[in-house]
Nucleic acid binder design. Structure first.
Length: 289
DNA sequence: CCTCATTCCTGCGGGC
DNA sequence: TGCCCGCAGGAATGAG
């Protein structure tokens, strides 16, 4: 699944292959792919014809492409979204949702998305930072990410630490896979209450989040093919380095205990029963008068 | 205001 | 063989 490292890899590909190329025509092959664009497909297509992408930027797992008129294309890959560069003679993928043709010819840009959780939209005047994604926090690799404020915000919460890591309004770019990896490195169970974590514990965890994202980013960079804007989150470049995610029943790389899988937030969480014991006390909800 | 369950979607693989 | 069901999960949404 595309998390920060994968989306950043895609950003680099788009930067190299879309900036400065006037858009000739756009084709929407599936309405769901632009469902966040309220004015609809006709408006989407008309608004982009003749425009030029001037940059490719990222906030968490969102991408936006500022245009030469001050608007911006917002893109989210969801779970299975991909941007691909292809020559016009390349047959369409079954799950092709949106096609961009450029005035200078090939390659064209294709938004392909099997499960259609991803999508594109246009943000009027959104070149600097679209209003639609202003609620997304900075990511931990951003120089302007505020560590101290993050620690305070986490400890202020009455929730569980994994929920906090996945909350894009608190810290962005982290998804289920890297959350589990960082928690394993920090030896914390995801159900640990946020308000009971010490400041040093949160800072340590944040450090591990950075390490994991940084390592994956490097791996994504090495496998990146300039002719194929890679966003295949399932392809093998990072799964070799995963310590817990998807490793149910396999030995913990630190202590040998078999990794467990637990259901959480309608998805799976992987952890080591020995290194990451479940918190002993479940918080008792306060009763209000 | 804050937290959290629900919902969207489709291909794949296991079980019967 | 073929069907059914569970699973993968980011984030908007509305409930409480």
């Amino acid at each position: 699944m595309p998390e920060l490292p994968e989306v950043e890899t895609v950003r680099n590909g788009l930067l190299a292959w879309t900036v400065g190329r006037p858009i000739e025509a756009v084709e929407v092959l599936h309405p769901r792919a632009i469902r966040r664009h309220a004015p609809g497909a006709v408006d989407f297509v008309d608004a982009l014809a003749g425009r030029t992408v001037t940059d490719v930027r990222r906030r968490g797992k969102y991408l936006w492409l500022p245009l030469d008129n001050g608007d911006a294309i917002i893109a989210h890959l969801g779970m299975s979204g991909q941007f691909r560069l292809a020559s016009s003679s390349t047959p369409d993928d079954t799950h092709l949702r949106v096609r961009f043709r450029f005035a200078d010819g090939d390659p064209q840009l294709r938004f392909v998305d099997q499960r259609t959780f991803g999508g594109l939209s246009i943000s009027p005047g959104g070149a600097e930072l679209p209003d639609e994604i202003a609620h997304i926090a900075r990511d931990p690799m951003d120089p302007q990410f505020d560590d101290a404020e993050f620690v305070k915000a986490v400890r202020r919460r009455r929730s569980e630490i994994k929920r906090a890591l996945l909350d894009q309004s608190l810290i962005s770019g982290v998804g289920n896979i890297y959350a589990d990896e960082a928690l394993w490195r920090a030896k914390l169970h995801g159900a640990r209450p946020t308000d009971a974590l010490t400041k040093p514990a949160v800072l340590r965890l944040l450090g591990h989040v950075r390490d994991v994202l940084g390592e994956a980013l490097l791996a994504g960079g090495t496998s990146f093919d300039s002719l194929y804007v890679n966003v295949n989150g399932e392809s093998g470049y990072f799964d070799r380095s995963l310590a817990v995610y998807g490793r149910e029943g396999l030995p913990c790389l630190r202590c040998g205990t078999l990794i467990r899988r637990e259901s959480f937030m309608n998805r799976s969480s992987y952890s080591c029963p020995t290194c990451q014991p479940r918190p002993r006390h479940r918080r008792v909800p306060l009763v209000r008068a």
